[in-house]
Design a protein around this nucleic acid. Structure first.
Lengths: 187, 187
DNA sequence: ACCTGAACACCGTTCAAGT
DNA sequence: ACCTGAACACCGTTCAAGT
């Protein structure tokens, strides 16, 4: 709808992925857009409103990408590789993190609306992973499949966090490769 | 040495584990101690100095606990369970996180001295894990052992992050159990 | 040696005022 | 409908001043 509103979100997202929800400054954000910081409050009454909108949009975008991946390839092993690549891409991009990963770490600081959206992102990811797993051999049991999808989601988030703290993307690759060798991520 | 300095660190640590480095307020910290916020700067010139001191102390404490665990039991499987329990304990404690895990998520916001300490914590944990693994069967090769130790460290951090974002400690248990079933964490 | 009050430039937020 | 300047209570930091 509003162009300014869209611009705020487009510029704020990578800022949060880099510096977190707490690290996002309305004044710096406004400066980059070319408006005054008070103007942001017209589009997003509070910082929490902006945070929740960013997380929702992030999930919607991720869902579109993941669904497209599966629809076009129908190849679970390849989808799992591409999934890890998505988290890798954030690190490649100036050592950024998954938006919902940073916000999860800031749990106590974000408003409830943000928490809800962060959980929705995780749910969405886990459902998609479970869908892949049940299309693979040896994952007939649906309860075990869900648990494994949850574990893969958590493990890849952990790989991103560990690699980020070392500012070394090869750490991410090594960890994910180790997950595969151990059998956590089927290949 | 200084009692006030020790009190600052003792009170600041759980605050950072709950709200992060960015979320820590000198004024709130000072209020809880019963001094003025300017006084904190006498003991820690900058927030970064306090953050680095907290991370170093955190690593030292963790090393003492882990070394004690291994020395007294010499049981790698039990040590691995106790290790995960340590991360679980933070969540039990009002949904807190590993100090170095939160600070890893705030990578771009913390000064270099803090980054160094956070990496030292990870190194220390991974070395200890590698020691356990090489004492177990089927982990003779030292290169693969190190990689596995790194993966276990990252995965448990990820489990903590995922469980925290849901404010549900059973999520942590389910993920760790899933790691065991998949064979990532030997048992 | 240790603490403090006051000031500085920051922060999110509010609101009356502008167009 | 959309933006702004000015004010508010916050923040880390500095520093001269106290004991």
């Amino acid at each position: 709808m509003s162009e300014t509103r869209e611009m705020i979100m487009a510029i704020a997202r990578p800022m949060v992925q880099a510096r977190g929800y707490n690290g996002l400054s309305f004044r710096e954000l406004a400066k980059r857009i070319g408006i005054k910081n008070a103007s942001i409050h017209y589009h997003f009454p509070t910082k929490g409103d902006l945070g929740a909108a960013l997380a929702r949009r992030y999930r919607e975008d991720a869902e579109a990408i993941l669904e497209g991946l599966w629809r076009e390839s129908q190849d679970p092993a390849m989808c799992l590789r591409k999934y890890a690549d998505g988290f890798r891409l954030a690190l490649e991009n100036e050592n950024r993190m998954c938006l919902c990963g940073v916000m999860a770490a800031e749990y106590h600081d974000v408003p409830d609306a943000v928490k809800t959206e962060v959980q929705a992102f995780a749910d969405s990811n886990i459902s998609w992973l479970a869908k892949l797993l049940s299309a693979m051999d040896g994952f007939g049991d649906s309860a075990a499949t869900k648990e494994r999808a949850l574990a893969i989601y958590a493990a890849i988030g952990g790989a991103q966090l560990a690699a980020r703290s070392r500012a070394d993307i090869s750490v991410f690759d090594r960890i994910v490769e180790s997950y595969r060798r151990a059998g956590l991520i089927p290949s």
